[in-house]
């Protein structure tokens, strides 16, 4: 974990209520795809835990959704402003678990923490299919970026305005992508449906919970798992699907 100040180099809307912020600064604590950052926003007591979408040696980016006052204030911030952020939080994905073909199922803002995972997978030569599930075409994020990484992308929308009409599980049933391991992040009912539909496969999920510290010291985000009580922030957010008690 590292606490440092970062300079905003980019903060723009990429879909309805969804923003991409890029921060320049020390990224040495970010080790694995699927980790998150905890952002201090002036005027708000607690930090906002947000998934890291992508990072390199000089900067990292977060695709985030405005869900309350704190993220609304964040969305108004401008290039050149500074933010204090804790980085290197959470366990991250086990990208090595997929051997030759991976399935990555994302719902909504869940497309954000999967991005670097797919980059890793494709980089290792793992054939990767990304299923993106949204309500409407205008909600879709990162589709072109996922394609640019070299992943096969399947889109599902509830209203049928783009891709397959229906749920991500409908898209998986219809397209039958090949995979030996799956990863999923999105709303809990979606992840449960994915795990149920892929009951015979191995995979992992990234959970979300209201957090206090984000770094494992307050026990504010503990969930029941088959392995016992686990902190989503420090023991997770990624859990093997067998560990999750829905």
């Amino acid at each position: 974990m590292l606490k440092a100040d970062y300079i905003i180099t980019e903060n723009r809307s990429i879909a309805d209520g969804v923003y991409l912020m890029t921060l320049r600064g020390d990224t040495s604590a970010i080790k694995k795809a699927g980790q998150f950052a905890d952002v201090a926003i002036e005027g708000y007591f607690l930090r906002r835990p947000l998934a890291v979408t992508e990072w390199d040696a000089e900067k990292f980016s977060m695709v985030y959704k405005v869900v309350g006052e704190g993220t609304a204030k964040m969305a108004l911030m401008k290039e050149g402003q500074s933010l204090n952020v804790l980085t290197g939080l959470g366990n991250g994905w086990n990208a090595e678990a997929a051997s030759s073909a991976a399935l990555v199922v994302c719902g909504g803002i869940g497309a954000s923490p999967c991005f670097s995972l797919v980059k890793d997978l494709v980089g290792r030569g793992v054939k990767t299919t990304v299923v993106l599930g949204y309500n409407r075409a205008c909600d879709i994020i990162l589709e072109q970026e996922y394609r640019a990484l070299g992943a096969e992308v399947i889109v599902a929308t509830m209203d049928g305005s783009r891709g397959i009409k229906g749920l991500v599980t409908d898209a998986i049933a219809q397209e039958k992508p090949e995979f030996d391991y799956f990863y999923t992040c999105g709303p809990k009912p979606m992840m449960k449906a994915v795990c149920d539909a892929l009951a015979d496969a191995s995979g992992e999920v990234s959970l979300e919970e209201r957090m206090g510290c984000g770094c494992g010291i307050c026990y504010g985000c503990t969930c029941h798992t088959t392995e016992g009580a686990r902190r989503v922030c420090a023991d997770g957010p990624v859990f093997r699907k067998e560990e999750v008690i829905w």
Binding site: Y44, F45, L46, E209, R210, M211, G212, C218, Y219, G220, C221, T222, C223
Partner: peptide
């Protein structure tokens, strides 16, 4: 959970 809520200048756990 939720076990945590924010308040102005503080929090509830």
């Amino acid at each position: 959970c939720p076990r945590i809520a924010e308040t102005p200048g503080g929090m509830i756990n």
